[in-house]
Design a protein around this nucleic acid. Structure first.
Lengths: 209, 209
DNA sequence: GAGCGCTCTAAGCGCTTGCTCAGGTTCGCG
DNA sequence: CGCGAACCTGAGCAAGCGCTTAGAGCGCTC
């Protein structure tokens, strides 16, 4: 899983975090936050999972909250990249929307531990850090809204309430992180495909021949 | 189950909790848990909001976890009632599904503080309490699945993956509790109506004339 | 009006929390 | 080899946690 580095693709999401000890701590924090939640996780638990003493954490991070912020920032960057990449592509609005949902959802399923922290622990962030993250989320919303708006203008979609539908689509996709279970019967790709179909129906996309 | 309390309607949701001091504590706990999360909430905070000393809490509840369980239980009972009532009605599958989604969603919006605790603090429950709640959630799933299954059998719906779509529908509705804001521009009823429409599209309901 | 049960409080116990700090080990570099 | 920088640990501090206990105030019955 986390041995090979270099390419910053799907499979090595934390390569940008150095040195190695800082990355180990961050990965341990992701695991612990996802399992128990931020507030129920102790710095001793994080350090223990990384095989270090509690004090080692404070060499690499100023506070426990900084750990959460780093995780949240990296995760939001990644999620936003997926959506904006899909939005910027050539192709019909249907194709771009399906692509956006498929990649966004399968990422939320594949990396559901990370995504759970990213999506559901916002409230634990400090004032400034939260503001920074909220700005990223607004850009995610804008990317999806742009695709849907394009589809409506092109006559491809039938959407009475564009902002409301955008919100619902993003909400639907995000919530995958909450229920997805790696032991379950569906692969992340299967869920992505299912959800892409469901979202195309939500926007009343003209079924392709 | 719970003894009949006159009108146990939407507007008096905690009437079954007595005595009054216990209800005040419970309401304070709902507020605090919704704002900060279970683990970040202190018993002193709960008691303070209810205008009592910290020790008063333990006259009415054995532990802080029991408070969460009571909230979760009552909320799940209410949500399940909405879904099963809609599922048991006469009428087409489209009508029953729209009704289920409309009432379920507008409850999640109207009572979003309660719903947030009910839906997002499951992990904080103890072993047995969680098992009890999970059983209720399975019944919610079954109610929605039944409506969708009926619609497919009647030729009203076009759903390739019934369990997957059921999961997505419930997930979509539940997540309303996370993003709904009372200061926002939409009323709970508006969101319920929007979502009922979106869900009918998801199941490929034959548009009514 | 004495006794009793219910409700509540002031005080605080034992423990865990996030975080600090003095000191030790390992390393590259002259 | 000597030295400074980077990294890590053991021990522990102040604060806050969930929860308990002893007892006060109150309304009730007999």
């Amino acid at each position: 899983m986390s041995t090979a580095e270099e390419t910053d693709g799907d499979n090595t999401p934390w390569s940008e975090v150095t040195p190695e000890a800082a990355r180990r701590l961050l990965l341990a924090a992701v695991e612990a936050f996802a399992e128990r939640g931020y507030h129920a996780t102790t710095t001793r638990d994080i350090a223990g999972r990384a095989g270090m003493s509690p004090a080692a954490l404070y060499i690499h991070y100023k506070t426990k909250e900084e750990l959460l912020h780093r995780i949240s920032r990296i995760g939001h960057d990644r999620a936003l990249l997926l959506l904006e990449t899909a939005a910027d592509q050539d192709g019909t609005a249907s194709e771009r929307l399906a692509d956006a949902v498929r990649s966004f959802v399968s990422w939320h399923a594949e990396r559901h531990t990370t995504a759970r922290v990213v999506q559901y622990e916002l409230e634990a962030l400090g004032e400034e850090h939260r503001a920074e993250i909220v700005a990223l989320r607004r850009r995610s919303d804008a990317a999806v809204r742009r695709i849907i708006g394009d589809g409506v203008r092109a006559g491809e979609f039938d959407v009475p309430d564009v902002p409301g539908t955008t919100l619902a689509v993003l909400s639907l996709c995000i919530d995958v992180a909450r229920w997805f279970n790696a032991q379950g019967s569906r692969t992340p790709e299967e869920v992505g495909t299912l959800y892409a179909d469901l979202v195309l129906r939500m926007v009343g996309a003209t079924p392709k021949q």
